[in-house]
């Protein structure tokens, strides 16, 4: 009985969606390092400063996704918070329906807003069981990058960046705006894809030296500097209009 009503609901929803004239957009995130596909653990990379390193974990939140409609206002997508995890490709893409129109840029926030940081236990990708929540100083870890480098004088030569903090002056949320380069015209029933590279190399921008900075695990100035760095890691790698 429950199953039946569920199917009926699904049919009704589909029918409504068709009536409203909409189409689907998929956003696909590609974790990369210096533009090349990111390979965790085994591939050696060199950062801007010259440190040789490997990456073992790369995760970040994308929230408040909007599409900018040419000549008018933003279309705020119905998407909630997405935790992108480089080791799980199923987390790297998501689809949603959009009204018909012509879009020329996409914008989102890396991080989690202060409302979600203070509202208690959340669900889905914001569930504290995802391991992106600080226990002793409440708030979300908005992005994590972990790996190893011989220059780190730490246990297992590990570096760990857990970036977050929602209270001023050390709010680590960053707004990202990406022009699509070409406009996407959404036509009825069509599926479009926006491909976005997330380049882990940008975490090490401005000459970050792992022998000096290799452990940022609390909110503060150092966390905000790294958030500034990685807010520039996104670029459009193509879209299929």
């Amino acid at each position: 009985m429950f199953a039946l009503s569920y199917i009926c609901n699904a049919l009704v929803v589909t029918a409504c969606a068709k009536e409203k004239d909409s189409a689907f957009v998929t956003v696909r995130i590609y974790p990369v390092f210096d533009g090349m596909q990111l390979i965790l653990d085994t591939e050696n990379y060199t950062n801007e400063h010259g440190n040789l390193l490997t990456i073992s974990l790369f995760r970040f939140y994308i929230t408040h996704l909007k599409l900018h409609v040419t000549g008018t206002s933003d279309y705020v997508t119905p998407e909630g918070s997405h935790l992108i995890d480089a080791q799980d490709t199923t987390t790297c893409s998501f689809s949603f329906s959009v009204p018909l129109g012509t879009f020329d840029s996409v914008s989102f926030v890396t991080g989690v807003d202060s409302a979600d940081n203070t509202s208690g236990a959340n669900s889905g990708d914001l569930d504290p069981a995802k391991g992106m929540y600080w226990a002793w100083n409440s708030g979300y870890i908005m992005a994590k990058l972990e790996g190893n480098s011989a220059v780190c004088k730490t246990i297992h030569k590990a570096f760990e960046f857990h970036i977050g903090g929602y209270m001023p002056p050390y709010n680590a949320m960053r707004q990202v705006n990406l022009p699509l380069g070409e406009t996407i015209t959404i036509e009825n029933g069509k599926r479009s894809t926006i491909n976005i590279n997330a380049d882990a190399a940008r975490w090490f921008a401005h000459g970050l030296d792992l022998s000096v900075t290799n452990s940022v695990l609390i909110p503060g100035r150092a966390a905000c500097e790294i958030a500034d760095n990685y807010s520039g890691m996104f670029s459009i790698s193509g879209s299929t209009p």
Binding site: N117, T118, S119, G120, A121, P128, Y133, A135, W136, N137, S138, G139
Partner: peptide, 14 residues
């Protein structure tokens, strides 16, 4: 350090 009753148990649990 903890801002909401619901997330308070995370401290002792972890």
């Amino acid at each position: 350090g903890v801002n909401n009753l619901e997330v308070q148990p995370l401290g002792p649990i972890t």
